[in-house]
């Protein structure tokens, strides 16, 4: 009979091999010092900023000059679009992680799903469709695992171009920097996010961005839906841009018209 003590023993046994990283204290010291520095700068900067604002207001009041221009608390549509573009540009060194849904399955309930990761600053990306395929791309190279045929197709002359997101997303989506290129028709706040409505290739394009960071969170484009989050390009997260080829899978080299057997890479 499994007793409380046995349960304790099993919990300890199942986790006994887990140890913190050896550089944990050094990492904590580094992060703590950084946070301390940011707080100090923020506190001093905030105090100086507040002092400067009061002085400026008083000078303006007593010198009878033109009234100070106070920036609106609610940015205009153009300002929002500019901020969205700037935030996106700043995030090209982050890993854009997105899950896409398109259409409906036969039972009308569960749409097909793919999951993708793209590091745009390095033109590397991956798209995974569970039980079906898993593809990685980088400049001059593509590798695709086909789980159903148990084959791996490689193309070492792959033409990637400069829009890596287009290779791992639905047709017409492409890089976020192109999403608002045809102008924004409407901006509204929506549950804490900012909702932008635009036209793209004649189809309504809806984008939700985080009201704090202005980074994209969700897209609806026709029957194509995408949810997005942004991962720092740490060593651990970079591993998401790669996949592991299952043992026993065959290989073909993509030669445009036909496939030919290929010796698996040795590295």
């Amino acid at each position: 009979m499994m007793t409380e003590e046995e349960l304790r023993d099993r919990l300890h046994a199942d986790s006994v091999g887990i140890m913190p990283k050896k550089d944990l204290i050094r990492t904590l010291a580094h992060q703590h010092a950084r946070r301390h520095k940011r707080a100090k700068v923020g506190l001093i900067g905030g105090s100086l900023g507040a002092t400067a604002l009061v002085v400026t207001l008083l000078v303006g009041l007593f010198t009878g000059g033109d009234p100070l221009r106070i920036e609106s608390a609610s940015p205009s549509k153009d300002e929002i679009v500019t901020r969205v573009r700037e935030a996106d540009q700043a995030a090209t060194t982050m890993i854009m992680h997105f899950v896409t849904y398109q259409g409906q399955s036969a039972d009308g309930t569960t749409p097909p799903r793919t999951e993708s990761w793209a590091l745009r600053s390095e033109n590397r990306a991956r798209i995974s469709s569970p039980d079906r395929s898993d593809k990685i791309v980088r400049p001059g190279y593509m590798e695709e695992i086909d789980h159903r045929s148990r084959m791996v197709k490689v193309d070492d002359q792959y033409r990637l171009g400069d829009d890596v997101v287009a290779h791992v997303s639905g047709s017409g989506i492409g890089d976020p920097k192109s999403w608002l290129s045809e102008g924004v028709r409407e901006v509204r706040t929506d549950g804490g996010d900012i909702h932008l409505v635009a036209n793209r290739m004649g189809v309504e394009f809806e984008l939700w961005v985080d009201a704090r960071t202005y980074l994209s969170k969700r897209v609806v484009f026709g029957d194509y839906r995408m949810t997005i989050d942004w991962l720092p390009a740490t060593e651990e997260n970079r591993r998401l841009l790669d996949h592991t080829i299952p043992a026993g899978f065959g290989w073909t080299k993509h030669v445009r018209d036909t496939g030919s057997p290929l010796t698996p890479p040795t590295t």
């Binding site: 140890m19 913190p20 944990l24 204290i25 904590l28 010291a29 703590h32 010092a33 301390h36 707080a39």
Partner: peptide
């Protein structure tokens, strides 16, 4: 003063991490 105290980690905190982080 800052809520974070010193820029350096407190030695007692480091000892706590060594002992209890696993």
């Amino acid at each position: 003063s800052f809520p974070g105290g010193s820029r350096e980690l407190d030695p007692a905190f480091e000892e706590f991490v060594r002992a209890r982080s696993p």
